[in-house]
Amino acid sequence: MKQINACGVLLVVWFIFGSLSSVQGDLKMGFYDESCPQAEKIISEYVKKHIPHAPMLAAPILRMHFHDCFVRGCDASLLLNSSSQQAEKDAIPNQTLRGFDFIDRIKSLLEKECPGIVSCADILSLVARDAVVTIGGPTWKVPTGRRDGTVSNKTEALQDIPAPNMNFSQLITSFGKKGLDLNDLVWLSGAHTIGIAHCNAFNKRLYNFTGKFDQDPSIDPFYAANLKKYKCKSLSDNTTFVEMDPGSFLTFDNEYYKNLLKRRGLFTSDAALITNATAKAGVTTLANSSDSVFFTVFAISMEKMNQIEVKTGNEGEIRKHCALVN
């Protein structure tokens, strides 16, 4: 195991200590133990059965959970349909998401087992965790008891979901609005170790960075040349996809951080992590550590994120169908 520098050790220890705080609101481990004792087992078994046959689905489901929590909290408002295309799922950041039907199938199984008991918000939180575990990633605690929201707003999604073209200051502001800090930004960005991105999410870095048909000087020239030659062959390409973590985009590991230090982060928001000294120190710590260190801190920040502005008690509702308000 590679050695971690002193700064990295202190950051990790501080986060572990911070994670021991009490659970927010009325969430608790085993919330369904009496009302639907098989709930978490049903979810876990379904994920373990199907994700190995579709491992690329783990990343969009994790992203779905992230995007949901950043808008109105973790209340499954992202899953709601809209007849006028004004719901969260209609916003540009969510138009490439996949896995809605996967969540719906699990919801159907739970409705047969115990009607009206398990929320879509809890299902999404649990499925995101179980999908990551199934592809060999970390596990984390998911206290349950979330209630589902009844409002889904396209404009709020555009405003609240961190964009791939954000700089470091904008990212810190975006995360701060949700009670997340610099370390959470570094740890949660590690989710980009899996999954793909379409060229139009970062093409300006390759072809028109400042509006003068130039290339972003912060990107590794060799990496940029390969992207232009083999993947994103024009500024207008909006269909081709690129691996977020070249060579290991299906493996949950710390290669993402190693690529950042080589200036091979795909998004502006990825590259932004090494423009701040403190964030870069965190990136360097994770790049030079074992995967287990990354797993530990990622899990801690996920536990923090999945409790953002949750609805509990009499708030919201338990939807019968995740895409529809009761």
Rank of each mutant, 00 (worst) to 15 (best):
S169Q: 13
H198M: 12
E34S: 13
K154I: 05
K112S: 13
P164A: 06
S289V: 05
V47P: 00
V297Q: 00
L260K: 12
L260A: 11
T296W: 00
S119Y: 05
I219Q: 12
K204I: 01
D291C: 05
F294R: 03
P115L: 01
L57W: 03
F241Q: 14
V142P: 06
I51T: 03
K112R: 11
K141M: 13
G190Q: 10
K48P: 00
V186R: 05
T278Y: 04
L266Y: 04
H198W: 12
A287I: 05
G25I: 00
L79Y: 02
G265C: 05
L324H: 01
I219D: 03
N167C: 07
S269N: 12
G137L: 11
D68S: 11
M56K: 14
D291N: 15
K280E: 12
Q307Y: 00
D253M: 13
Y46M: 05
L185A: 08
D291E: 13
Q159P: 01
T96K: 11
L273C: 13
G247T: 13
A277T: 15
G313W: 00
E156R: 11
V283L: 02
I92H: 10
K2F: 07
N5M: 07
K212Y: 12
L250F: 15
I61A: 04
P246Y: 14
A87M: 02
F70H: 09
C36P: 02
N183T: 14
N5V: 07
C199I: 01
L206A: 08
